[in-house]
């Protein structure tokens, strides 16, 4: 299948590995490309990319456009943006999907501005309408807003964890297309130092058990109860925006549209009112328990079990019961 007029996915390599969201997008991209009967291409930029290109083909790419250069090892807007613009102008994709990572968001936004294309953020589902136009669903206000982007290509970003990684098939065949790159003689920006550091999200995205707190937790002291409960359950800690704004917890732990997307099996929401911006980041927990003082809190519409009570009354005995040696 041709790289021209096709569906593209930005495949982001970090420290020699593909980010999971790139593969998740290939799965969804494959479905949409088949529906449109066009080729699915992955855009891969970095250094020493051969094994990654093969992985992308195994996960559904028909073509991989590879720009391989030592200077491209880390994401750098000054180099990546014109490169991707050049690829778009040459091959004219119909649709271009990006993971909502630091690099993915930046590259998508800048590229969209350069070519004057619309870019829809926070998409959680796509559909192809009868005119072969991409319908982009964004959660908001207790439902989904449906967007269309103008211009070519139709561009969207998707948070990690929204789609699932397809089963790789290393028998699949695909084409690797090398893209020329020569670094500018006098770049205006450079990376002086790079520090590899695992984010402090504490494995939120992979966590099977999450204890999350919201504004209702009230203060930093009560937040310790959230941490203790998480510890007792061997769970990851999550938060809504207010605790992050208040400084009780790091921004990396924020769950929701502008934070992390999580798929826990067990989700314990404490002092969370449950607006859509938060809940859209929590994908189908199998057991969902909410504790909130306000009986009218929206969270009770979505949880399986609810407790209308002050968290300072419920959490201490619960922590005791769930801790090793507790009554369980």
């Amino acid at each position: 299948m041709s790289v021209e007029n096709g569906l593209w996915v930005f495949a982001q390599a970090v420290e020699g590995k593909l980010l999971p969201v790139s593969l998740e997008l290939l799965g969804e991209g494959r479905r949409l490309a088949d529906r449109l009967d066009v080729g699915l291409s992955a855009i891969l930029i970095g250094h020493n990319l051969q094994p990654l290109a093969l992985e992308l083909i195994a996960c559904g790419a028909d073509n991989v456009l590879v720009a391989d250069h030592a200077k491209l090892y880390h994401y750098r807007g000054e180099l990546y943006i014109p490169l991707v613009e050049k690829m778009i102008l040459r091959y004219r994709p119909e649709i271009f999907l990006f993971g909502a990572t630091q690099g993915g968001k930046d590259l998508a936004a800048a590229t969209a501005a350069r070519i004057g294309a619309g870019l829809t953020a926070h998409c959680v589902a796509f559909e192809i309408d009868e005119h072969k136009v991409l319908k982009q669903l964004v959660p908001a206000f207790g439902g989904h807003c449906v967007f269309r982007s103008q211009g070519n290509p139709q561009m969207a970003t998707v948070a990690p964890g929204v789609f699932t990684i397809p089963e790789p098939d290393y028998e699949r065949q695909g084409k690797i297309i090398e893209i020329d790159f020569s670094p500018p003689a006098e770049p205006a920006t450079k990376i002086v130092e790079f520090k590899t550091e695992k984010g402090s999200a504490g494995g939120l995205e992979e966590a099977e058990v999450i204890v999350a707190g919201g504004a209702g937790v009230g203060n930093a002291e009560n937040w310790q109860l959230i941490e203790k409960l998480a510890h007792a359950l061997n769970a990851a800690v999550g938060a809504t925006r207010p605790p992050v704004d208040e400084g009780w917890v790091e921004e990396e732990k924020m769950i929701g549209q502008s934070g992390r997307n999580v798929r826990p099996k067990l989700y314990l929401a404490v002092g969370i009112s449950g607006d859509q911006l938060h809940l859209s980041g929590v994908q189908n927990p199998e057991l969902f328990i909410a504790i909130n003082k306000d009986p009218k809190a929206n969270i009770f519409k979505h949880a399986h079990f609810g407790v209308v009570e002050d968290l300072t009354k419920i959490l201490p005995p619960l922590i005791e019961l769930l801790s090793p040696g507790g009554d369980n």
Binding site: R148, S149, H302, A303, K313, P317
Partner: peptide
């Protein structure tokens, strides 16, 4: 560059079973 052309409300969620009793 983008236009919202539709809004799809979600069906009202079922609602939680509220646990009763002392803490």
């Amino acid at each position: 560059g983008i236009q919202m052309f539709d809004f799809l409300p979600l069906p009202e969620a079922q609602g939680a079973e509220i646990l009763e009793g002392g803490p």
